[in-house]
């Protein structure tokens, strides 16, 4: 049994180590994410100054600053878009054939690999960025807020894994799915609160978005750390996430069982 665990652990470590090759890229990402936050800081400062109000949509100006910094910190590790890229790469390069004969299930390989990637992204970008925000923004984080934040991030990662996994399997039929991945990622950002805080949207839009799992990826973790989401709201969103996770998992298994027999790669 330990041997089996070792095998799976090795795949996770490989995923982590792969990202070590792109250290400079992560520093670049970190730098530009900080710069990108400053654009929204400048824009919202101008908006608050012109509107002569202290709060918009429940956000004071400092909270709005922190929101955009938090979004940029969280976005890189809260959803598992790389899993669909990995499947596409395996199909296109033909490595899927060798991956399928390895003594670790292919689904586990790509999941653990992307998990390793995300853990690295979390440690290299999200964590230092968050630490900076907490220090500069004087965020007083409670143990409960941190616990909720971690649950939300884990649930968001899980739900997005199933969604992006199913998108990845489309590569079996279409080979090149870059466009579909990009569209899904964009929708995730839009519906998750990556463009504007969801509380600024009309109530009808908020009611719809509350039923989708995307807000778990960006808006809710940021609102949790800012202390702007009540325990009731957080628990409700986690429940929504869990409700999505179960059928999406079942659907992923179903989809994989259907497509695995149809995989062809270089060499037939």
């Amino acid at each position: 049994m330990f041997k089996t665990i070792d095998r799976y652990l090795a795949v996770l470590v490989i995923g982590f180590k792969q990202q070590l090759a792109y250290k400079k890229d992560y520093f670049l990402t970190l730098g530009f994410r900080i710069f990108a936050s400053f654009i929204m800081v400048a824009v919202w400062t101008a908006v608050y100054l012109n509107s002569d109000v202290t709060s918009i949509g429940g956000f004071t100006l400092p909270q709005m600053y922190l929101y955009f910094f938090l979004i940029n910190a969280i976005a890189i590790s809260s959803f598992n878009e790389p899993i669909s890229e990995n499947i596409q790469d395996d199909i296109q390069s033909g490595t899927v054939t060798t991956a399928l004969v390895k003594p670790v299930a292919y689904t586990a390989q790509i999941f653990l690999n992307s998990l390793g990637n995300n853990i690295f992204a979390g440690l290299a970008v999200t964590l230092p960025f968050l630490a900076l925000i907490v220090l500069i923004g004087h965020l007083a984080l409670s143990i409960q807020a941190i616990a909720f934040f971690l649950i939300e991030m884990a649930l968001s990662f899980t739900v997005s894994t199933f969604i992006f996994f199913m998108i990845g399997t489309l590569a079996v039929y279409l080979t090149n799915i870059w466009g579909i991945i990009a569209v899904t990622e964009s929708l995730y950002m839009l519906l998750g609160g990556g463009v504007v805080p969801l509380s600024l949207l009309p109530s009808w839009a908020n009611n719809i978005l509350a039923l989708l799992p995307m807000q778990l990826s960006l808006y809710l973790p940021a609102a949790t750390l800012l202390g702007m989401a009540s325990t009731g709201e957080i628990l409700q969103s986690i429940l929504v996430g869990l409700v999505w996770a179960v059928p999406l998992f079942a659907l992923s298994v179903l989809v994989w069982n259907r497509v695995r027999g149809k995989i062809t790669s270089v060499g037939g």
Partner: peptide, 11 residues
């Protein structure tokens, strides 16, 4: 659209 819906916008 959101900025101008919830505030006076940019001066």
């Amino acid at each position: 659209a959101v900025i101008y819906a919830v505030s006076s916008g940019i001066a």
